[in-house]
């Protein structure tokens, strides 16, 4: 029996965990037990940096990663461009387009291969000052971001005061008023109980971030060709299911949060316009590549 160990930095009970469990059952069924899938959540087999490096060295088999993958393949940083994807359909259109193939080709020579892109969700802004409807509402607010130059520049461009902070500090920093708000998928607002220390959640959908299921080439090369084919196909075929599951779960979570925090819609077009300079900014263009941005805009029909 072949063992497949899949690592993820995301915790038990996250979207990633749900999808990996579904993948495990589908793959073990499809291979009639020829493969034993073992799932390691919360970085229990090494930091994400080490896991991704280990894929090429052959020490790790596979990883389901989110933003950290941009360190390996800069083209995946396309998802850092704000207000690019208006809904999950657009994400799937992108994945099936030449731009999607261009992104997958960015893994060539990195020691790993992209098997599939799964759902992870749109990010929303919460704060305890006022509902965010138009860009002007963000002016002067201290918004926590991850340690990402792109996200910092995005919020600063929109007039906010971006404050990079590790996620573990966010709850107490919000509680103490050291920062006014933060941005994360709605599911995090619920699971990390951020609604206890925040008054408003604005459905900004400013960034869509998928998860990337990547396999190490040494591991794939060691598999029997038929098995390898099944491993990749089952992963790709699971993608639409993850997007449907994500849509339903998002709707349910937002409905549940409605009792605990004031929720509002935003003027998406106004934000898109305010963020336009970022599409020319070297912070984004130099990392992602002008060709990748152009291909994505073409695929999504954005002028």
């Amino acid at each position: 029996q072949t063992v497949l160990q899949i690592n993820s930095s995301l915790p038990d009970g996250s979207f990633a965990h749900v999808f990996l469990l579904e993948y495990e059952s589908r793959l073990e069924a499809a291979t009639e037990g020829a493969i034993d899938v073992q799932i390691f959540m919360s970085n229990t087999l090494g930091s994400e940096e080490d896991v991704l490096q280990g894929l090429g060295l052959g020490t790790h088999h596979a990883s389901l990663s989110a933003s950290a993958i941009a360190q390996i393949n800069a083209r995946t940083a396309i998802f850092d461009l704000p207000y690019l994807f208006e809904d999950r359909a657009a994400v799937q259109t992108f994945a099936a387009s030449p731009a999607g193939e261009m992104m997958a080709a960015g893994f060539d020579g990195t020691g790993m291969m992209l098997a599939a892109m799964w759902d992870n969700g749109f990010r929303q802004i919460t704060n305890d000052v006022r509902p965010i409807v138009v860009p002007a509402d963000l002016v002067g607010l201290k918004i926590r971001t991850p340690t990402s130059r792109q996200r910092v520049e995005m919020f600063n461009t929109l007039g906010a005061n971006a404050t990079p902070l590790s996620f573990g500090e966010v709850y107490s920093a919000l509680d103490q008023g050291v920062i006014d708000g933060q941005e994360n998928p709605a599911e995090i607002v619920e699971s990390a109980r951020l609604y206890e220390v925040q008054d408003y959640m604005s459905l900004s959908n400013h960034v869509y971030l998928p998860t990337f299921l990547v396999f190490g080439e040494p591991y794939l090369n060691g598999l029997d060709p038929a098995l390898r084919e099944t491993v990749m196909t089952v992963a790709a075929e699971l993608a639409p299911w993850t997007f449907d599951w994500g849509t339903e779960t998002d709707a349910r979570v937002i409905a549940e949060l409605g009792d605990r925090i004031a929720i509002n819609e935003v003027d998406f077009a106004a934000f898109q316009a305010a963020a336009a300079p970022l599409y020319e900014s070297p912070t984004f263009v130099d990392v992602i590549g002008a060709d990748m941005i152009a291909a994505t805009r073409a695929a999504l029909g954005i002028e």
Partner: peptide, 14 residues
């Protein structure tokens, strides 16, 4: 040494 070499010229994030 093998692991360090595999990082090539990759830069830190921040």
């Amino acid at each position: 040494g093998i692991a360090a070499a595999s990082f090539g010229s990759r830069m830190m994030i921040s």
